[in-house]
Simulated assay, not measured.
Amino acid sequence: MSTRLAKRPLGRTGLEVTPVCVGGGPLGSMPRNFGYDVPAEQGVRTVLRAFEGPFTFLDTSNNYSGGESERRIGEAIRRNGGLPDGFVLSTKVDRAADGTFDGDQVRRSISESLDRLGLDRVPLLFLHDPEHIPFEDGVAPGGPVEALVRLRGEGVAEHLGVAGGPVGLLRRYLDTGAFEVLLTHNRWTLIDRSADDLIGYAHGRGIGVVNGAPFGGGILAKGAAAQPKYAYRSADEKILALVRHIETACAEHGVPLAAAALQFSMRDPRVSSTVVGISRPERVAETAEYATWDIPEQLWETLDNAAAPSSLWQW
């Protein structure tokens, strides 16, 4: 394995993960978010290819495609005869279809996930998108945080993380002391640096940092013309202009845009792993190539100063 893909410690959890994590979002087919369908067998074959390496970390969620991501991962686990040795699989507890997100729903969510995956426990379990409920409900007696802590005590999950968007809210959840891992998304990219202080805060306290969506939903992999959206929403013209500027700079140095976007996250020593959604078997090797592409320092001097104005960040 390339030294660039050597495993890194995930905070103080004791887990070691590769600097790239296979994202399970598109595995179950999410055409509204990603713009394309993923047939079931293709999803299963993609997971089986991921099990071959070089990545040893895969992340999914209870609500990705109504559980279809987990079903396909579970089928791949069954065909493979179990998870490969040293492979870390994480999933997330989610709110119910009616918006309920209390302690009972947390238990229902992980029970459904384990059934789909064919497992009796997971090494890492995230509280997913807590921005959909008031913080006070999240930490209330009998609420989701309390239920997660109990699940960890029962051995259903080895370690707990919080995964979501708004950086201020995630900071409040980290301050509860319940979480060992942070997963932020769309907020630490070539374009958006919203999560900088949050990542520093987590890292300084020994909390593992996982950074999701380094491509911002596709624009930082496909380019502004092919994908004029950032974080699944129409991008501001200033963002599109900056992406075009980044594309030009990468082309001048013979570097794929996706390689620069991925390595922007990977080269940050505070980030243990970067989540990349993968939906085709061949994308595993392609992503590994992007992760190890030689990028000259002159290009980084341009890219490190290429972010959009903070008024356009996700925060």
Rank of each mutant, 00 (worst) to 15 (best):
V210S: 07
I207F: 02
N62A: 13
R121Q: 07
A261I: 08
R187S: 15
V181P: 06
R32L: 12
A202K: 04
T184V: 15
G153P: 04
A235C: 10
K92W: 12
P84W: 11
D268P: 04
T3E: 15
R79Y: 08
R49Q: 13
T60V: 10
T13A: 09
S194Q: 02
N80T: 04
I207M: 02
T13N: 07
S311D: 15
S29M: 07
H159A: 11
S279G: 03
G200F: 11
A195I: 00
I219S: 00
S311W: 14
D196Y: 13
H245N: 14
I199D: 00
G99S: 13
A195Q: 00
D175T: 03
D102I: 07
G66E: 06
M30S: 09
S310N: 05
N211V: 14
G35Q: 11
F215N: 02
Q105K: 12
D137G: 06
T302C: 06
R152T: 12
S61M: 10
N186C: 10
G43V: 02
Q105S: 06
P26I: 14
G43K: 00
I239P: 02
P281I: 00
V122S: 02
T3S: 13
E136M: 11
V243C: 10
L117A: 05
V209D: 04
A221P: 03
G103Q: 07
R4I: 09
P269M: 13
L257K: 05
G208H: 00
G254V: 12
D115M: 10
A97R: 13
R121D: 09
R121P: 00
T184N: 15
L183Y: 09
V275L: 14
A306H: 10
